[in-house]
Design a binder for these strands. Structure first.
Lengths: 204, 204
DNA sequence: TAGTATATAGACTGGTCGGTCTACTATCAA
DNA sequence: TTGATAGTAGACCGACCAGTCTATATACTA
């Protein structure tokens, strides 16, 4: 029952390779377009190992993969929006511009690591759907905390945080379609004004 | 070369049935999860007719389908945000609450008719990707016009309109995952304050 | 009526899908 | 050395995939 990395000097364990490769392929192409054989070939693992580590097959492997990227993104959110980096009305737009840069750098092939899965699987798999919902919730709560630390009240922070996550998800979709940073950069600009306006309002 | 509806008293033409059914299935399950055989069975059309009307197969049929729903949504946007219904800072939140209601009413199975396709196909099909980008652009322009009619300047209208479309797309994804109106309603609330704040700012 | 384009009909193909199955190897404890 | 468990290996399965093909029916025109 050893699920962590193996000897750090050698290649990662089969289990870790499977998860890592699945993360990447899901982000590029989504759930149904990513075949188990492709995952197997890319990670150089035999099919027997996959069903040894993930007895419930594709669904279980996918949940492991999106949980991993979900947590990684959560940590990026916490780091970027940490109060020591400044007030939320500065850190949030900067965070979105950073995402914009990364999406561009990937040739508009990545971004929104769980979005495609969320939409594709929402219909067919309850387990996948709730896994995605939980990740979105964690992200939202992290943003919420940053807003509260910058002076928002609970109720405002909740709706604004939800709206920020939604803006990012939607902006990534538009940017990938358009193959342009424009949508994400426009959202960063708009959000900067929005948050500034709210902060100013509060001073009165 | 007759592409419109046939005799209104009888059932729609094969071509129209194919497009309509494809729209629905794509919205429920996405591109790769929707098989041609399923489309054929649901619309009660033989395969020969599909390749007669859409020689390029699934891709061409999908483009026809998303163009249709894209245009239908565009008209809904124009109607809802028409200046005679009031200022944008009232009509836009109302529009989002209306979407929220429809998503709930569908059992959280529909909403964001082109989002899934946009993400799934962005990687593999340039034609589909640009078709989605064009639809997003049309939606954005319609919102932009409504904002300008309510007193925004061009530059602000563009970024705010982009951000509104993104919020809606992202909010629908979150609502479908969570099976709750909460995300979309929170976005409507947040947007209401955001637009009100901007309007107040402008008075000064 | 004959001829032509349009449209319907579905059998069929090669390929891929997710998943099962058996066999083999490595590790470690008794 | 033996036995049990964890892990690797890949052949194999039925189901389904998008797309091709030939045959036929229908509608309109010459």
């Amino acid at each position: 029952m050893e699920h962590d990395n193996c000897d750090p000097a050698s290649r990662p364990s089969t289990r870790d390779r499977l998860i890592t490769v699945t993360c990447e392929l899901l982000e590029f192409q989504g759930y149904h377009a990513t075949g188990l054989n492709e995952i197997l070939a890319t990670s150089e693992s035999p099919k027997g190992s996959l069903y040894h580590h993930f007895p419930n097959g594709k669904e279980e492997l996918t949940i492991a993969a999106i949980s991993k990227v979900g947590t990684a993104v959560l940590e990026r959110i916490r780091d970027s929006l940490s109060p020591e980096n400044g007030p939320a009305h500065a850190t949030v737009p900067a965070f979105i511009r950073d995402i914009s840069m990364n999406v561009e750098r990937s040739g508009y092939r990545t971004g929104g690591p769980i979005t495609t899965v969320a939409l594709e699987a929402a219909a067919s798999s309850k387990a996948l759907r709730t896994a995605c919902a939980e990740i979105y919730r964690e992200w939202q709560l992290a943003v919420e905390r940053a807003l509260i630390a910058s002076g928002s009240n609970q109720s405002e922070a909740e709706s604004v945080a939800t709206s920020i996550i939604a803006r990012i998800e939607g902006g990534i979709i538009m940017a990938r379609c358009e193959r342009s940073r424009r949508p994400l950069d426009a959202i960063a600009d708009e959000l900067e004004q929005d948050l500034a306006c709210r902060a100013k309002e509060k001073q009165k």
